[in-house]
């Protein structure tokens, strides 16, 4: 018995360590630390733009902004956590374009959606990076025209890698393939890194990727960029045309990141956050951090961002629908 009692005492003592300090009473927002949910692991794109935003917000709001990584199920876990959080402004979300894909894919498979897009309200767009179509430097394709011509000759034989099925990199490629009316072979990987490794090893022939990871390989002469999905050419790749220039007028795609709050967050709180985000993008430390990441800051305030998001979500929804349920298709 004495053993058992000792055990219980020790459990009680140890669990005392876990009791959080009582929260102070409510005051003008923000009166206590804010949690920023990043639904991806540390080191990913969302984390890399989330942390500088959090650091700048901290200075502006005079409250700690704690970044919490809640990875899982391609971001669905963290986004659902934010969508279902109390709408009081103390939980904010740093999300990527995939926020619009997950509910669509859930719908496609007829499963209980992890969250609805209507459960989240946009605060500010922070970055938007167009994807770039890259092929091996040893490949015969010098232009998009070469690529499309070859793909038409042998449908379904040119393969591309992606960050995962219905992932952003898959969707970008799907948009281009649809517009060019070509059939490509899809080999999904788990994440942009392994997808790039597969292209570098010549296991696949093409990849749509964010510019950051591929630019060093383009400069080193291992990869060739054929086109970008942006509205205008990338500063880092001035010779690479956009799909729009090449006549694919609907082929426009960005990997973007933005700050969201749970829907129903009171208007005064929203205003504080929107004003704060406006100052964040002007913050010199934030700017230099984003410059180092070679990620252009593209700021949009809530109303504008909402429009951008609606358009993007509709485009992605259409792409997801076109891809359809994978296992129903005959390869």
């Amino acid at each position: 018995m004495s053993h058992f009692r000792k055990f219980m005492w020790a459990v009680a003592a140890a669990s005392m360590l876990l009791v959080p300090a009582a929260a102070p009473a409510q005051d003008a927002y923000p009166s206590r630390p804010i949690t920023m949910i990043v639904p991806f692991p540390p080191g990913g794109v969302a984390d890399q733009s989330g942390r500088p935003v959090a650091a700048a917000l901290e200075k502006i709001l005079k409250q700690p902004v704690v970044v919490t990584n809640r990875p899982g199920a391609g971001g669905a876990v963290g986004m659902a956590a934010a969508a279902n959080a109390k709408p009081d402004g103390y939980t904010i979300l740093m999300a990527l374009s995939s926020i619009s894909i997950i509910p669509e894919a859930d719908k496609l498979f007829g499963r209980q959606p992890a969250y609805q897009m209507s459960q989240l309200a946009p605060v500010a767009l922070v970055t938007a990076d167009p994807t770039v179509l890259v092929v091996s430097a040893d490949s015969p394709w010098k232009t998009v025209e070469d690529f499309v011509e070859d793909a038409k000759k042998r449908p379904g034989e040119i393969s591309f890698s992606s960050s995962g099925v219905y992932g952003t990199l898959h969707m970008a490629m799907e948009m281009f393939a649809h517009a060019a009316d070509i059939k490509l072979r899809h080999v999904p990987f788990s994440g942009g890194g392994p997808a790039l490794t597969a292209l570098l090893g010549n296991h696949v022939q093409a990849l749509a990727s964010g510019p950051g990871p591929v630019i060093p390989h383009i400069k080193a002469g291992k990869l060739r960029a054929l086109a970008s999905w942006g509205e205008k050419r990338l500063d880092a790749l001035p010779d690479v045309p956009t799909f729009k220039e090449l006549g694919y007028k609907d082929v426009e795609f960005y990997i973007w990141s933005g700050v969201f709050v749970p829907a129903g967050t009171p208007e005064p709180v929203m205003k504080v956050l929107r004003d704060a985000m406006r100052q964040v993008v002007e913050d010199p430390e934030f700017k230099s951090a984003m410059e180092k990441l070679q990620t252009p800051v593209v700021y949009m305030d809530a109303p504008e961002f909402q429009k951008f998001w609606d358009r993007d979500a509709a485009m992605l929804a259409a792409a997801v629908q076109r891809v359809g349920r994978i296992e129903e298709k005959k390869q």
Partner: peptide
């Protein structure tokens, strides 16, 4: 080569990118 060859090197590469160093074959 600058390829993230596993979860841990991927985090290390991310750390380099935060510091403005583009990991790649020319590193």
């Amino acid at each position: 080569l600058g390829v993230p060859s596993g979860p841990i090197p991927a985090v290390m590469l991310a750390a380099l990118m935060v510091h403005g160093i583009a990991p790649g074959p020319l590193l």
